[in-house]
């Protein structure tokens, strides 16, 4: 932990905070550029009622004041009141949905990382053999399938045809298929990343030196090669978070999981602007946080990288 590293961390933190601020600003102004009032879609409401609602939600104030109020609220984890789910605050709804999404998402990420590193190493160590070819073909196929294709195919074949797992997320064992469909793409991606970085490392001079010194083959792989080959995988943590969070919008709808993604798509259907803004900012925060953590971790793991 030298001073150079601290400076880097502060710079990176400043960048993350600026990004968050921009996301809040973009979200706010884009949603407020919509000419229609958020209440006009509700049926059987007189102009007076809409007016009263707008005053209640603070939509009558100048835009700049509204933005500052909103920003102040977001800093206190207060995203305002939901207009579609009457009586609920956006923050409560987000936390309710997040508990489901987090358990699916983190399990999927965990599985993807463990299996991805394992398969990537297996492929690299068996370079050119049949196992490598099989892993390459399967991962190439998996990174070419959008999340909704994977999820609906799993629903059709594994749930409907084979009947191994229920099709609804709230039944026992119902979380298995959502987790599998979210983890396949990142797993394949990590496998490819790990394979190429492992091949790079295995060709390095210090590995040859270690082997020449007579270090056991297993020790060369675990102690010398794997540790260095892991760093590129860390950089994928941020994009993986983004994939899992946006993928959950599709997957949670397909398997009827009451998570954050389903909440988001539902609030789009019901044109609940406060919810759309709140969930967007929350998801963006998670992605930016993950990017920050992975960048800092990357520098910790590999001190050779220039701290610019």
């Amino acid at each position: 932990m030298n001073s150079k590293f601290l400076i880097y961390m502060f710079k990176r933190l400043g960048m993350a905070l600026l990004t968050i601020f921009l996301v809040i600003a973009i979200t706010f102004f884009v949603m407020h550029a919509i000419p229609a009032s958020p209440f006009s879609s509700e049926k059987a409401k007189s102009d007076a009622v809409i007016k009263a609602l707008e005053i209640k939600y603070g939509f009558d104030k100048p835009l700049g004041v509204q933005f500052l109020n909103y920003l102040w609220g977001v800093l206190h984890f207060d995203f305002g009141l939901s207009t579609a789910w009457v009586g609920f605050t956006v923050a409560d709804l987000i936390m309710g949905g997040f508990s489901y999404s987090a358990s699916i998402g983190f399990t999927a990420a965990f599985i993807a990382i463990i299996l991805g590193i394992l398969f990537g190493c297996l492929a690299a160590l068996n370079r050119g053999k049949w196992l490598d070819s099989v892993i390459q073909v399967v991962t190439t196929a998996l990174v070419s399938m959008p999340s909704f294709v994977v999820a609906t195919l799993l629903l059709l074949f594994v749930s409907f045809r084979l009947g191994w797992f229920p099709s609804l997320g709230n039944q026992p064992g119902g979380m298995v298929l959502p987790i599998v469909s979210l983890s396949l793409y990142p797993m394949a991606y990590i496998t490819r990343l790990q394979r190429s970085s492992m091949l790079d490392v295995l060709g390095a001079d210090y590995i040859r030196t270690a082997r020449a010194k007579g270090v056991k083959s297993s020790k060369v792989i675990y102690k010398h090669a794997l540790k260095n080959a892991l760093t590129p995988v860390i950089t994928y943590a941020g994009p993986m978070m983004a994939y899992i969070l946006t993928g959950s919008m599709v997957v949670e709808n397909i398997f009827s999981v009451p998570g954050l993604g389903r909440l988001f798509t539902n609030s789009m259907l019901r044109t609940d602007y406060m919810m759309i803004m709140g969930v967007t900012i929350f998801l963006a925060f998670m992605i930016i946080l993950m990017n920050f953590i992975s960048d800092v971790l990357y520098k910790v793991m590999d001190p050779r990288i220039d701290l610019a």
């Binding site: 921009l22 996301v23 973009i26 884009v30 949603m31 983004a242 789009m268 044109t271 759309i276 967007t280």
Partner: peptide, 21 residues
């Protein structure tokens, strides 16, 4: 700065807004 923005979320947000417009 642009690189750090979560692009898919902004695509979704814009499409929601444009659809309403």
């Amino acid at each position: 700065i642009i690189y750090a923005l979560p692009d898919v979320l902004i695509v979704i947000l814009l499409s929601v807004a444009i659809k309403e417009m």
